[in-house]
């Protein structure tokens, strides 16, 4: 019996180890453990043995079956591993084959700067106001203390359009008309910024464009002073440019503010950048906006967005911003 079992076991293990695939192994398993397999026959023959031998013979059969099963499991694992290894090799991919550069769009640098500026001022409690790009000469000039014939009108290089009475409708030369529209629309206190497109009759070159973008700020409240203007410019400077940037005001001239100032930004390296104009809102402008200059005072400021955007990335020719060339647009 024992000899017989040894033969059965040896040939079963040989058959298992001879299987070269998981499919073949499954067939061998059926052969080895099937009802008509020698092992099953040996199991069945236990009943024919004398009772005193049955126990040891039974143990021998079970042990033999256990060894065959372990051999089967071991060979299955090694076959599975080999097959997985073969499959993985066959599935090899070179991940560097994927071309670089995904098709995502790129926001225009003017829009990026515009939105960043809006966010800074919203954080300081300002709302964002808008107005028409085609304006009346009253909103663009008269209401801003630049009456007809005022020499400052020449300085703006205004583009007029054929609409209404000749010479009365123009492409706004600055975002300041939004000040007037806001004051006429809304009671003080007023805290707004007005970003937008503006126009000048200028030949395009590296530093001038006939179409560009400005951001205007207007505050009208009780007891607003030059200190509030300087503080607002300073807070904006640090919030937008970062820590270590400071600002200063120095006297300047604009028809729509009195006193007027130019504001400069000082970089951490000590160098200065002339950024824009500002001042206390001229009483004539408050009056044009329907606001009593004795009860309310205010300040206004304005600067160019495009130049800020260009400076940030070292773009030295503003014309590049407006060609639609993707070799430019997709850099940012």
């Amino acid at each position: 019996m024992i000899d017989e079992l040894n033969t059965i076991e040896t040939s079963a293990v040989a058959a298992i180890e001879g299987a070269t695939s998981l499919a073949a192994l499954a067939e061998v398993k059926t052969e080895v453990f099937g009802k008509s397999a020698p092992l099953a026959k040996a199991q069945r023959s236990l009943g024919t043995l004398p009772p005193e031998d049955r126990k040891s013979a039974g143990r021998a059969v079970n042990e033999s079956r256990g060894r065959i099963e372990r051999a089967l499991d071991a060979h299955r694992s090694s076959l599975a591993e080999a097959e997985r290894a073969t499959q993985l090799v066959a599935e090899r991919l070179d991940l560097t084959e994927v071309p670089e550069g995904a098709t995502v769009g790129h926001a225009h640098i003017v829009t990026q700067a515009w939105q960043a500026l809006e966010d800074v001022f919203v954080g300081m409690g300002f709302r964002v106001a808008e107005g028409p790009e085609v304006e009346t000469d009253w909103h663009n000039f008269d209401a801003l203390n630049i009456p007809p014939g005022h020499p400052a009108r020449d300085g703006f290089d205004t583009i007029y359009v054929d609409h209404g009475r000749p010479g009365t409708t123009l492409l706004r030369t600055h975002t300041s008309p939004v000040q007037i529209r806001t004051m006429l629309d809304q009671e003080p206190p007023i805290y707004i910024v007005a970003p937008g497109r503006v126009f000048r009759r200028d030949t395009a070159d590296a530093t001038h464009m006939p179409v560009f973008h400005q951001l205007e700020g207007l505050v009208v409240d009780r007891d607003i002073s030059l200190a509030d203007l300087a503080g607002t410019i300073e807070a904006f400077t640090e919030a937008y440019f970062g820590p270590g940037f400071t600002s200063r005001l120095r006297p300047n001239y604009f028809p729509f503010t009195e006193p007027s100032a130019e504001f400069d930004i000082q970089r951490p390296d000590g160098s200065w950048l002339e950024l824009g104009g500002c001042g206390m809102v001229h009483p004539n402008v408050l009056n044009a906006g329907g606001i009593d200059p004795e009860r309310w005072t205010g300040f206004a400021f304005g600067f160019g967005i495009d130049r800020l955007a260009a400076m940030k990335y070292g773009v030295d020719d503003l014309r590049e911003l407006f060609t639609g060339d993707v070799r430019f647009l997709n850099q940012f």
Partner: peptide
């Protein structure tokens, strides 16, 4: 102008 100081208005 710098003697006016700097103050941030609080809307």
């Amino acid at each position: 102008y710098e003697k006016s100081g700097k103050r941030v208005p609080t809307p």
